[in-house]
Amino acid sequence: MNLFHLLIVMFVLIIPVTESGAAAEAEYQVKAAMLYNFAKFVEWPADSFGSDSRIIFCVAGKSPLNSTIQQMQGKQVKGRTVSIRQVSRPDEVAGCQVLFIPHSENIRLSAYLQQANHNVVLTVGDQERFTASGGMIGFYEEENKVRFEINLEAAQKRHLQISSHLLNLARRVR
């Protein structure tokens, strides 16, 4: 039984190394951080913020991003404070500057996109057909890394300007 004691001791020894842990859900950690980064490289028309000094990130439905995006709350982007809002219905998207629609909301995707098009909202999603369905930035995975594609036409229609830096990083632009 010596060995098992040794194993236990070994693990107990390394536990004090622990600092506040990062979440195990790597994929959505990365997606949340990317979402925050996208906002840096997109220009909204000046009037789309109204008098609000905040930039509002909306997250539709339920996905692990609901918790990973919380880390961005209160951060600054373009001199505005990031505010996170959960939305559960398509008609709640008014006032959002960024809207993330997870693949679990696939059924209501077109309803969300339609509502978003009534406002000036950067739409981001991670379903396969996202940009084909009219979404602006779609996540996908390649070689176990998160990538994104951009539907430039959809963004331009809503007068959103996407910087060339972001376009260069996108692997696919339609």
């Binding site: 990062a22 949340a32 490289f41 880390q71 998160v146 990083l169």
Partner: peptide, 19 residues
Amino acid sequence: GGDLSEFSLEQLMQVKVEK
């Protein structure tokens, strides 16, 4: 501090997700 929000997109695109 120790979160991912200060990573650039280039860095984020190198982080591997386990699939």
